[in-house]
Design a protein around this nucleic acid. Structure first.
Lengths: 122, 122
DNA sequence: TGGTTAATTAACTACTACGTTAATCACATG
DNA sequence: CATGTGATTAACGTAGTAGTTAATTAACCA
């Protein structure tokens, strides 16, 4: 029983499932409609939907003999929140690159160490 | 051979690996230092680092007999970009919830359809 | 040279993921 | 009731994941 965040990321780690979510973001659809664009059997799509459903990313409701699928983005929000923790980090990494690009336009002061890494461990 | 985004999400779909990234976000570390807080064998951590490295989230460099690990956040940026596509979607979903919460404080105009879903398919 | 330490690789086990086809369930309809 | 359709479940193959312990590589040190 993995945690919620792991389940969410695992669900997103498949291009078919991401495509299904992309499709559902434009509106609800039945299982058959979702399966149609894929070169894959209906049971395969059904299983992908089960994965998405267990991850809380899709909800299904009966409509006669059809199943109506709807996207549910709350877990994506949590995943984004986790990733946001690193946003400043990559912005800083860019800053370091900027610093580096600045230094190589400076006269080479005392840096003949042959170091290849612009970033400090800091 | 999955695509880059799938590899990134798959790498993030493990709490040990996310913890390793969190640790590395505070500064570089050796494999042994990374392994220390976990109740897990060193080879297990080494494999997790291999997964992170293949996903481009960690780079390793030799430092004598140690391996120096550094976080590399570019793939996280791409993952975030993908998730950002859904940000407006969940904001809208919240708006719809707000609308719904507003309607149930309104006199029931002509909405006796028994519908349970505040959102439109739109 | 020989021994210790850091880390990886090898070999193995157990489990899970992803796809298939065939069978089944559940609803719809002539 | 019989039959077709939408979707799931069953059973299976293959491949990958996650962990273990044991063996190996590579650097350091006395």
């Amino acid at each position: 029983m993995p945690d919620q965040l792991s389940t969410t990321f695992a669900a997103l780690a498949d291009p078919t499932r991401r495509a299904i979510l992309a499709r559902l973001s434009t509106g609800d659809a039945t299982v058959g409609e979702l399966a149609e664009p894929f070169d894959m059997s209906l049971p395969a799509i059904s299983k992908h939907l089960t994965v998405l459903e267990k991850a809380g990313l899709v909800t299904k409701s009966r409509d006669g003999q059809r199943r109506h699928c709807r996207i549910s983005v709350a877990p994506l929000k949590d995943a984004t929140s986790w990733l946001e923790l690193y946003r400043q980090h990559w912005e800083q990494q860019f800053d370091n690159l900027g610093d580096y690009l600045a230094t190589i336009h400076e006269p080479p002061a005392d840096n003949g160490t042959g170091a290849h890494t612009p970033q400090e461990s800091s």
